[in-house]
Design a protein around this nucleic acid. Structure first.
Lengths: 199, 199
DNA sequence: CCTATTTTGTACCCATCGGTACAGAACCTC
DNA sequence: GAGGTTCTGTACCGATGGGTACAAAATAGG
């Protein structure tokens, strides 16, 4: 058993609260006072548990990918390229329905731009966005191999397009777009996704 | 003639420099020290000429719309809906070529999210984005009236889609995408723009 | 030249920033 | 209960944030 005074808060629950603050205000717009107030702990507890602000932010990224953006993994397991994209966008749009979630995508707005001091977290987020793009490309490669996408299409470009629309939807959501409006945009964007190759 | 000591710098040139800083670092990530260093002036001159940080930011928005995003107006004057969209995206992507411009769109990344104190500038940028969407919708209404777009399409949704892709491209650009990559995405997105109505 | 007017440079204001020292509180093992 | 260990609360640190007071400098009109 762990000796010493036990921690008085749930580590993941507090991390979730920190994530929401970073998500809503961005790295530069978030102060330690904002964080400790939302997490319900004080600074020494924060530093002892998560390290400094940047370290906390990086843990928030991990948490976001695993807990909030978990629909991405589900979407990638869909049987066809089109359903993958449909589920991806549908799931992203569904996030807006939950009023506990700040509007928009944390991976986009957490630190799209930032002060000089925060550039490493900016790069970390960009890296995560690229990671999503890569996963899509690999999924589309599989789709081509399975005859589910015409072999003429560039899976790289298609993955980048899907990623671009996702990020565009995130900006729209951050600007206050409704679920219905986002769904209409996604439906239009689906027209650019090639249908299954004829056989 | 104006009495008193003459201003020692060019108002618009210094505003351009301030715009670049806000564009690159965002409202929260930009300090007055960053601004005065880039503008080549000191704080009292800045405050006397532009007002406080928020006022300077709002003037930077105006400057951006009129000087940097001027290709939007040109695009709207294209003869058909498709060429409007083509020119819009082409012009936006061209901005990335100029190394003096920070990557991405100022209207998106200037304050996509922010601290509590900066919410009014966040709203001002969102308003400008909506303004662009509105201009597109009106242009598409004209296109429908001219038989240039099928009357079945929702011009509202189409405008929102074009705006969404634009903002997505901006996020891609901010993440380091090349001109060629952005052009490939735009080409794919064009497939969702309806062709001229058959007559 | 003298005065009125405006801009510039220095030097400063207070509030807040991220981060920490330190003492007391709360647990474990013995 | 004693000793060791870990966490919490307060109170603080130097640095930086946005913003300004004030005097010197530079012009125009007289």
């Amino acid at each position: 058993m762990q000796v010493g005074r036990p921690r008085g808060f749930d580590r993941d629950a507090a991390l979730d609260r920190a994530l929401r603050v970073f998500w809503q205000k961005g790295f530069d717009g978030t102060s330690l006072t904002d964080l400790t107030a939302a997490m319900g702990i004080n600074r020494p507890s924060l530093y002892a548990t998560y390290g400094d602000k940047e370290s906390l932010f990086r843990q928030a990224i991990e948490r976001y990918v695993q807990v909030v953006a978990c629909h991405v993994q589900g979407a990638l397991e869909q049987p066809t390229a089109r359903t993958v994209v449909e589920q991806l966008w549908r799931g992203s749009i569904e996030l807006v329905r939950n009023p506990e979630n700040p509007r928009g995508c944390f991976l986009v707005q957490g630190a799209l731009v930032c002060s000089d001091a925060a550039q490493s977290v900016q790069q970390a987020l960009a890296q995560q966005r690229l990671q999503g793009e890569l996963a899509l490309r690999q999924r589309f490669e599989r789709a081509v191999a399975e005859g589910d996408l015409p072999s003429e299409v560039s899976v790289t470009d298609l993955a980048r397009f899907v990623s671009t629309v996702s990020h565009g939807l995130a900006v729209q959501a951050a600007g206050g777009a409704t679920v219905a409006e986002l769904e209409a945009v996604a439906a239009l964007a689906m027209q650019a996704i090639p249908a299954a190759a004829s056989r």
